[in-house]
């Protein structure tokens, strides 16, 4: 399962990278969203899968799964939400100011 998950992560990262490399700001934001999904899964997987039960004391007698990646991911989820929101608004402002959502039309130094 672990190997399969990591391959899945690899595929997600590749797709996210492709989206990030595109010109449209909306696709770039989508790319970052997918990238954060991939990273969350990666973190969870490298901690080991199905090694034990839910990390709550008293629920089971056997070993727990690794709780540390879970704590990391929990913060990462909330942060990535905030970042996505910020990026969306940034894109909105960019569109409002420049009248385009295409990065390739923003380049250059004409305004300097």
């Amino acid at each position: 399962m672990e190997s399969l998950m990591i391959i899945l992560v690899g595929i997600l990262v590749a797709i996210a990278t492709y989206l990030i490399l595109s010109r449209s700001v909306f696709r770039v934001i989508m790319g970052t969203a997918i990238l954060s999904h991939a990273v969350h899964l990666l973190l969870l997987t490298v901690g080991g899968l199905k090694k034990g039960d839910v990390p709550i004391i008293g629920q089971a007698d056997e070993a727990f799964t690794d709780a540390l990646p879970q704590a990391l991911i929990l913060t990462a989820i909330v942060i990535s939400f905030a970042v996505t929101a910020f990026l969306l608004v940034l894109a909105y402002r960019m569109y409002l100011t420049n009248g385009t959502d295409d990065f390739s039309q923003l380049g250059g130094k004409s305004d300097e």
């Binding site: 990591i6 690899g10 595929i11 990262v13 590749a14 797709i15 990278t17 492709y18 490399l21 990666l42």
Partner: peptide, 21 residues
Amino acid sequence: TKAMISIAVGATVTLIGLAVM
């Protein structure tokens, strides 16, 4: 070009992830 870069990035992540496991 973009596809190649993306695939290379994905492959790097996969390979390193597998090695870390």
